[in-house]
Computed example of a mutant assay.
Amino acid sequence: MTLVKFNNGHRNAVNPFFSDVFQSLLNDSPISDRLINKTPAVNIAETENQFEIELAAPGLSKEDFKINLDKNVLSVSAEKKVENVEEGKKYSKKEYAYNSFVRSFTLPESADQSKIEAEYVDGILKLNVAKKEEAKIQAREIAVK
C-alpha cells in the first residue's frame, strides 16, 4: 500500500481543527527541524498601566535584536550568525549556524507608542508598552440612588 498525501490548498473544510494523523509522522525528523523557521514563544499580559510582551529567545545578545514601530505595528526581529573555524593539518573545518526570526504585534489604540521599553535578561526579551492616561482603568465607587 502506498501513502499519497494530497495537498489541494484546502485544509479540512468539514472540520478545521482536524489534524492529519500522518502529518506528525512525516514531519518528525531531525532534517525537517533544521528547515523549519522557528519563532520564539510569546507571553502577552495586560496590567492596569501597561501591556507586557515576553519573547523566549535564549542564546542571543541584546545587540542581535531589532525592534521597530511602524504606525501601530511593533516588529521584533533577531539575527545571529555563528561561524566556527578550526584549522589543522592541511584541512579546514567550518561550522555555520544561522538563526533569525520576526514577530509582529498590532498595538491597540490604548497603547502609548512613545513609551515603549525593551530589556533582555536571562534569555527573555521583555517589552513594556505603556497605556495612554485616558485608557487606564479608573476605579471608583458608584452610589446607589
Rank of each mutant, 00 (worst) to 15 (best):
47 T>L: 08
48 E>P: 07
48 E>T: 14
49 N>W: 02
49 N>D: 12
49 N>M: 10
50 Q>F: 09
51 F>D: 00
51 F>R: 08
52 E>G: 06
53 I>Y: 09
55 L>P: 00
56 A>W: 09
57 A>I: 06
57 A>G: 01
58 P>I: 06
58 P>N: 06
59 G>K: 06
61 S>R: 08
61 S>I: 10
62 K>Y: 09
62 K>Q: 15
64 D>G: 07
65 F>P: 03
65 F>S: 05
65 F>G: 06
69 L>S: 03
70 D>C: 05
70 D>A: 11
70 D>G: 02
72 N>E: 11
73 V>C: 05
73 V>E: 11
74 L>M: 06
75 S>W: 04
76 V>W: 02
77 S>H: 02
77 S>W: 00
78 A>W: 00
78 A>Q: 06
78 A>F: 00
79 E>C: 09
80 K>I: 08
80 K>S: 09
82 V>G: 06
83 E>M: 12
83 E>Q: 13
84 N>V: 11
84 N>K: 15
85 V>W: 07
87 E>N: 15
88 G>A: 11
91 Y>T: 08
91 Y>E: 13
92 S>M: 15
93 K>L: 14
94 K>Q: 10
95 E>V: 13
97 A>L: 13
98 Y>Q: 12
98 Y>P: 03
98 Y>N: 15
98 Y>S: 12
100 S>P: 00
100 S>Q: 12
101 F>T: 01
101 F>C: 04
102 V>L: 14
103 R>L: 13
106 T>S: 12
107 L>C: 06
108 P>L: 05
108 P>H: 02
108 P>Q: 02
109 E>A: 15
109 E>Q: 10
111 A>I: 00
112 D>P: 07
112 D>F: 02
114 S>K: 10
118 A>G: 04
119 E>H: 09
120 Y>S: 05
120 Y>C: 04
120 Y>I: 02
121 V>S: 09
122 D>L: 05
123 G>E: 04
123 G>Y: 02
125 L>S: 01
125 L>E: 01
126 K>G: 03
126 K>L: 07
128 N>H: 06
128 N>E: 13
129 V>Q: 00
129 V>N: 04
134 E>F: 09
135 A>P: 00
136 K>H: 04
140 R>P: 02
140 R>Q: 11
140 R>T: 10
145 K>T: 11
145 K>Y: 10
145 K>N: 14
